[in-house]
Design a protein around this nucleic acid. Structure first.
Lengths: 206, 206
DNA sequence: TAGATTGTTAATCGATTAACAATC
DNA sequence: TAGATTGTTAATCGATTAACAATC
């Protein structure tokens, strides 16, 4: 996806800035922010420049100003509404994931095909997958998380696309086929761990 | 991390090849594999070339040969042993995550500081964080997953490093400070979702 | 003013894509 | 042989880093 890396860094900067603010800081220099976010000061300035976010020569950046700019870019104010499809381990964990709270990410509904899994959880209503169409129309949600078994992932994905979902976070280890105007981000937990194992072993053998 | 992208693609190729094999294929061309893995045929050939994996002119690649090569590179045979620190939603979900089974990823132990969470689950023994040192020595595990609240993540990370852990999969939205010889891979679920929201909105406004 | 920091332009680096020779 | 595919070399593209002028 275009600008992928910058977007992720900007989001990371925001998290860092919120942390700075919480401990009472009012301004930062690109150097401080870079250090906290794990990138160089030049990278920080370049990224801001790219998104027309400006600081003050010599005086650095006002944290509140930066946060306002970043929140404008990423829409901090309206809640981001999300569906979860698949009420297995991952799906259920995300239903109650605390990390979403401060980001105004709201799980609007969960879906599964197994009726035994459709008990309301964490205040979120769970539905049979058949209700997907109706629910999408009612709620205007356009982001969904796929947390179903691999063999079902493409089928579920197709359903989501038909229902008008435009962004998908996919936990199944397959490359989903989607139309051009649908965005997918893959979280492949096994591959993440396996690549770690690779690096660790590689490093030891040097 | 060096070669990061190639490594991930190679792991993805392996998953695809296993799927091809399961449905009875014996050979593939770079074109087929690329399509399934979501990359170009040239990319596939280039990646293989980089890791000295060779096919046959005109005849493509024998799936079994490829798998053998990839398994040699990534160590398919010995189980990859992992600790999980933090028995909250994410930690517990990973304990029972089915996706690890076929990859020979074995969760050896779970840790938490809350005694009420230390009931054995999914056949995995859970321990108080104080036992980390002992357990590392007993098991020779050198990969761990951090799934604790943000405020605890760096502290837990430091403990892991002291215990000799060399690879960390981090679910906390902070950039961990680690020595050079320790590898970290970050899974920031909020940021993944937020960037999706950004792309979807961006796309609609065009 | 002197020193420090931003913001932009230029240089470098690395990864992807294109081209094509080798060859089965 | 003709056609198709691999594997490598060259060209392109984009992202990061370095350099430095502007300026507070």
């Amino acid at each position: 996806m275009r600008n992928d890396k910058i977007i992720r860094r900007l989001l990371q900067y925001r998290t860092c800035l919120e942390r700075f603010k919480k401990i009472g800081f009012e301004q930062v220099y690109s150097y401080n922010l870079g250090k906290e976010a794990g990138v160089s000061a030049e990278q920080v300035r370049k990224d801001f420049s790219r998104f027309s976010i400006h600081g003050n020569k010599k005086a650095g950046y006002q944290i509140d100003d930066l946060l306002e700019m970043l929140n404008k870019t990423f829409g901090k104010h309206e809640a981001k509404k999300v569906f979860i499809v698949g009420m297995g381990n991952i799906g259920r964990a995300l239903l109650s994931y605390k990390g979403f709270l401060g980001k105004k990410i709201e799980i609007v509904a969960g879906f599964d095909i197994d009726p035994s899994k459709l008990k309301k959880r964490e205040g979120v209503q769970l539905f049979h997958l058949d209700e997907l169409k109706t629910m999408t129309e009612q709620t205007n949600v356009n982001i969904a998380i796929i947390a179903v078994p691999d063999s079902q992932a493409q089928r579920v994905c197709d359903m989501l696309v038909v229902c008008g979902i435009k962004g998908i976070m996919n936990f199944a280890p397959i490359v989903l086929k989607v139309p051009e105007n649908v965005f997918v981000t893959n979280i492949n937990l096994s591959n993440e761990l396996e690549s770690l194992v690779y690096y660790v072993n590689e490093d030891e053998s040097v």
